[in-house]
Amino acid sequence: MYSLKQNKLLLLGLCLPATLIVAIFIIFPIANGVYMSFTDASPLRPTSKFVGFENYRYLFADDVYWQVLGNTIFIIGFATILAMLISVCLALLLNNTIRFSGLYRSLIFQTWVVPWIVIAILWGWIFNTDYGLVNGTLAQYGLIESQIDWLFNGKYAQWAIILCFAWRSIPFLMVIMLAALQGVPGEVLDAAEVDGAKYWQKTFKVTLPLIQNISLAAALMQAVRMFQEMTLPFVLTEGGPMNATMVLSMYSYNLAFDSWDFALAATVGSLWLVMLVLFGAIYLKTVVREM
């Protein structure tokens, strides 16, 4: 029935739209992007010329690039770790037979659809120096004496973004982990209990190892999405103060569509691709092989 030969027309019909989209809007842009990184391309210029590794040399010598790379890894790394820790605890908590646990799950998951632009405005309000909820609450309980300039101090601003990224990642990670937990066969836990395992032993020796792969895959996926996320720094801090919250995606976006320096933006993007390939290779070699 599913013979390739007899169903050529059908297959063509099924695959053509996606093939065209992928070829024109993914493969060509990637190839062209890598090519542009070796030129001085810009929409402001009618023609471009080949410049070899000039853009790469420029970028490697640029402190801002390294700072942005560091920021990105710092922000996404901490946000992912924080989100993972909280999500595991939440999932374990809600996986108990607690009354309303379904409601809690739905409420938390509901926050996943709050648009980024809304979050950006909201974060600006919550972390507002003079009237924000955070400073207000901290002052109310006597934890701070003067108002903290959350968004105008580099270190604090990074943490405001980390908190936001983590907050935004938690709902998704939590529901995936809850689903994974629900997939842990009851017999296995019963067997562990018969063997005399206490709750914590069951959790650390049986439950968590069983959901480890799914959780790590979900975390990776979430980290990847955060890597591409730039609405928050763009609207909330505009990458500042002093580039402290400038992340890689926003940096290359600004180069491309603010400075109209397509060549340099493409160089940032190409290096990003290289990192991706390296990371993917390591991932395939280590994690996937173990699975």
């Binding site: 062209n32 929409p43 996926m221 990847v224 890597f227 995606s249 976006y253 993007g269 691709l273 991706l276």
Partner: peptide, 18 residues
């Protein structure tokens, strides 16, 4: 799967031209 992680600004530039 991996194209989910592709740098979007890189895609956007050629898309803009196209």
């Amino acid at each position: 799967l991996s194209s989910l992680a592709f740098p979007i600004p890189l895609l956007m530039m050629s898309m803009y031209i196209l």
